[in-house]
């Protein structure tokens, strides 16, 4: 590892420690905010691991997230809680592999809408199965506190960053960058593009499912309409794109300022939240092409820092 790597590692470790200690120095208010932000950081970063290099925009986050919440909802009484997020991750990864195998030959917008349709179909099927079995509403009543949920999310986040860093250094990451630039070239260079993409698609699938499993105790009442809400998929995409998907830390740079902005707008204009949020959004898109990563890069270029 080079000096830069060590420096980055040190910075990452320090930031992780800072994040993990939030429940200690922060107020309950910041813990609640932090939990939501941690959720989006985890989802958006894992999303960008796949979508950043391949340029495939996936709207399937809600499907995997919803499956995760159902894993907890169905299993929390019979299994110890710590088993559930890994279990959800495995189910998510397997599903993602299946989906990946059949869909990744679609390109561009067809893939985007396919994943959207997929999420909706999963939700409909789950609802229908519930209906057939006369299932009552699911209540996840546990003694898990917000603080524990937050720590689990931070831990999951650390894993995602580690995975992202390792993938970036591996042959897989190299292969994916070539695919993103030109799939034909990649094929000619002897890369099994389908396999590489499927392997990577499993990452956001597993992570989103695990996130859903961790967050189920926070929602308490699990119903398909909220667990599979398509808005979540869009929010994740939006936050990742706002940050910029070119860097591992890009999505985090989208999630945190955007969450703070959202909170500030909600407080200042409780009755026009959505209107102002929409306008703020447009302003960001117009003023910050390339997201916050783009802003940072321009800043570095102007002031001549190393890149």
């Amino acid at each position: 590892m080079s000096g830069t790597d060590w420096r980055n590692l040190a910075i990452s470790a320090a930031l992780l420690g800072l994040a993990a200690l939030l429940p200690v120095y922060g107020s309950p208010y910041w813990l609640t905010m932090g939990t939501t932000m941690a959720m989006f950081v985890v989802l958006a970063t894992s999303w960008a691991l796949f979508s950043g290099p391949t340029h495939y925009i996936s709207l399937a986050t809600a499907a995997f997230f919803g499956i995760g919440t159902f894993v907890t909802g169905l299993g929390f009484q019979s299994l110890p809680f710590w088993v559930l997020p890994p279990l959800a991750a495995i189910i998510g990864a397997v599903l993602a592999a299946l989906v990946g195998l059949v869909t990744l030959r679609l390109s561009g917008v067809y893939f985007v809408i396919f994943t959207l349709g997929l999420a909706e179909m999963v939700r409909q099927v789950v609802t229908w199965v519930q209906n057939q079995t006369g299932h009552r509403g699911m209540y996840v009543l546990t003694s898990i506190t917000e603080r524990e949920i937050y720590w689990m999310l931070v831990g999951l986040g650390a894993l995602v960053f580690l995975a992202g860093w390792l993938i970036g250094r591996s042959r897989l990451g190299f292969a994916l960058r070539i695919i993103g630039n030109d799939e034909t070239v990649a094929k000619h260079a002897g890369i099994d593009t389908a396999l590489a993409k499927v392997a990577l698609f499993m990452v956001p699938g597993a992570v989103a499912a695990a996130t859903g499993a961790i967050l189920a105790p926070r929602y308490i009442y699990i119903e398909p309409a909220t667990a599979f809400a398509p808005l979540l998929s869009f929010q994740v995409v939006i936050m990742a794109l706002l940050g910029g998907t070119g860097r591992l830390w890009g999505p985090i740079a989208g999630v945190i300022p955007f969450s703070l902005l959202w909170e500030a707008i909600t407080r200042q204009a409780p009755n026009q939240t959505l209107l102002l949020l929409g306008i703020a959004f447009l302003v960001i898109v117009y003023l910050l092409p390339g997201g916050f990563v783009g802003l940072w890069d321009r800043f570095r270029r102007r002031f001549g820092g190393r890149s």
């Binding site: 869009f234 995409v237 939006i238 959505l274 949020l277």
Partner: peptide, 13 residues
């Protein structure tokens, strides 16, 4: 996608 998503929020508002 980003811009029209923002617009949809604004229109709902």
């Amino acid at each position: 996608i980003l811009a029209t998503f923002g617009m949809s929020f604004a229109f709902v508002g």
